[in-house]
């Protein structure tokens, strides 16, 4: 009982601190921690442990503009980061209690399996191979392949217009394979990295660049005068939140939090303050409780 009261006091104190810290510069999207305590969660669950500790370790990308990009301030910023904050706040953890860890595409599964991170929110596509080693909450966003062209381009409006055009993407990537399978009339120019396509596109050596919309949106946000996105996304890449395999209670909890954030507007708010600056606000995807 005593410890419980102490935790309550600690949570209350940190809440007060967080509120004080927000002060009047309220234009950033600070998510206030909920007034919850460890006792609200069933004993022995991950939620109780995290709320008890008052801290959570979240893996995200540090190099993905609009989703998880670590700026000069030291803390990452973006839509994934905001989603992480929403989940933490529902555990009664404020922003100072979140430890951000960089996870890259190649190390996300090992970090979850080793327990180096509690959750991963890192443009993490849900697929069956990954489901064999980790579990996914969500999806909280549905990315997809799109087309980026020069700002003055008028001929290309959908992937069907790419026939006979030279299209840049990365050798060995999923978007390249998708183009070969579904749009074989496009002439692919294959470089080693997506950023290699930018200069040829600017100079007119290629007509379009195609990959996931979130990557393209980052390029558009960096040079809005040179590039634009056209058409709809034509593949589906559901982004989920990775967590340790078999922790069903935690997964249900995060799914509940996501649905709540769809309903109370915090999801839309998180989107509009980050990726929404370049991409249209989509409908939140239905959470998949597999």
């Amino acid at each position: 009982m005593r410890t419980k009261r102490f935790i309550f006091a600690a949570v209350a104190a940190s809440t007060a601190l967080a509120l004080a810290a927000c002060g009047d510069d309220d234009d950033d999207t600070t998510t206030e921690p909920e007034d919850v305590e460890a006792g609200d969660f069933e004993e022995g669950t991950t939620m109780a442990e995290l709320a008890d500790a008052g801290s959570i370790t979240i893996g995200t990308k540090f190099d993905q503009p609009l989703f998880g990009l670590r700026g000069p301030s030291g803390d990452p910023e973006g839509f994934d980061v905001e989603i992480g904050k929403i989940i933490a706040s529902k555990l009664g953890i404020d922003e100072d209690g979140i430890e951000w860890v960089e996870t890259q595409s190649a190390n996300r599964e090992p970090y979850i399996e080793d327990g180096r991170v509690d959750i991963v929110v890192a443009t993490y596509t849900i697929n069956d191979e990954r489901k064999e080693v980790v579990d996914f909450a969500g999806p909280y966003y549905e990315a997809g392949q799109m087309i980026m062209v020069r700002a003055d381009e008028e001929e290309i409006e959908s992937p069907d217009d790419l026939a006979g055009k030279s299209v840049c993407t990365v050798e060995g990537s999923t978007p390249a394979q998708n183009m070969r399978d579904n749009y074989p009339d496009a002439n692919l120019e294959l470089f080693g990295a997506y950023s290699d396509c930018l200069e040829p596109l600017r100079q007119g050596q290629v007509d379009a660049l195609t990959t996931d919309n979130v990557i393209l949106a980052g390029y558009v946000s960096e040079s809005p005068d040179d590039f634009k996105l056209v058409g709809e996304q034509f593949t589906e890449e559901p982004y989920g939140i990775g967590l340790a395999k078999g922790d069903d209670e935690f997964r249900d909890f995060i799914n509940d939090v996501l649905e709540e954030s769809y309903d109370d507007g915090s999801w839309v708010e998180a989107w509009e303050s980050t990726a929404g600056e370049v991409l249209e606000t989509p409908e939140p995807p239905e959470v998949d409780r597999y």
Partner: peptide, 19 residues
């Protein structure tokens, strides 16, 4: 050249290694 948009042996190797 495989890293500069010429689909020669090395580029093919990368594609097959990825898939």
């Amino acid at each position: 050249a495989g890293g500069f948009a010429v689909t020669e042996l090395f580029a093919i190797g990368r594609r097959l290694a990825n898939s």
